[in-house]
């Protein structure tokens, strides 16, 4: 018999909302919402990200899994006295996180990463599409500690160097995590642009953020 997280993963990949909902509902009779998310939902999403990286599932499945996951999390939190971020945020002080897409209108990757981080208990400011100057201003104003930057096109990825150089001057405490297609085709690119880490699939986001904040994954 598969573990609950594996069964949930299979229901995500099959885009079987009903089965996913049943699995979570059964778990929720025995465990508090945070534990259901941490032991079932989060591992399922991370495993699906890994499958995509290996070429064993498609991006449409990753995105639609995230969409179902968002509905499940919302369902778990219905009736709770606390808001989502308070329930999901770990007890230790959470870092101030933001995510942005640099210069592109392709926003899918950022949405998937947001969902994974939410399942991991993090609240993430979503800046959407940004240019370098605008993004620098927002990161400073919001005192962001970890910035996740998604790009689709190579020139946008290269422009991340300018962003990071700017951040080192005006917000040196901010760590930068990059991701997106160019990094998947050039394994030295993230270091060239001066990033602190690269995520090759959304499932890595939690591990990276935990590592940068000094927590064990």
């Amino acid at each position: 018999m598969p573990l609950p997280s594996e069964a949930l993963q299979q229901s995500f990949l099959a885009l079987d909302r009903m089965r996913a909902s049943e699995l979570v509902a059964v778990a929720a009779t025995e465990l508090p919402p945070l534990q259901v998310i941490e032991t079932m939902v989060r591992p399922a999403l991370e495993a699906i990200g890994q499958l995509w990286e290996q070429g064993d599932c498609a991006l449409s499945q990753v995105y639609m899994s995230g969409r179902i996951c968002e509905e499940l999390i919302d369902g778990l939190l219905v009736g709770s006295a606390s808001d989502a971020s308070r329930i999901l945020t770990p007890q230790v002080a959470a870092p101030r996180l933001a995510i942005a897409v640099l210069e592109d209108y392709h926003l899918l990757g950022r949405q998937i990463v947001r969902t994974v981080l939410r399942a991991g208990g993090y609240e993430v400011l979503d800046y959407g599409r940004q240019d370098v100057e605008e993004l620098l201003d927002r990161v400073c104003a919001d005192r962001i500690e970890i910035l996740l930057v998604s790009t689709l096109m190579l020139p946008s990825a290269l422009r991340t160097r300018m962003l990071i150089d700017g951040l080192r001057r005006v917000s040196p405490q901010t760590r930068v995590v990059v991701g997106g297609a160019p990094y998947r085709f050039d394994d030295q690119l993230w270091q060239e642009v001066g990033a602190d880490a690269v995520g090759l699939h959304a499932g890595e986001a939690l591990t990276i953020v935990n590592r940068l904040t000094g927590e064990a994954p």
Partner: peptide, 15 residues
């Protein structure tokens, strides 16, 4: 449609 609609909206349309 990725350019016509945006990727997210297109996946929702498709599914």
């Amino acid at each position: 449609p990725v350019m016509q609609l945006g990727f997210e909206r297109y996946l929702i349309l498709m599914h």
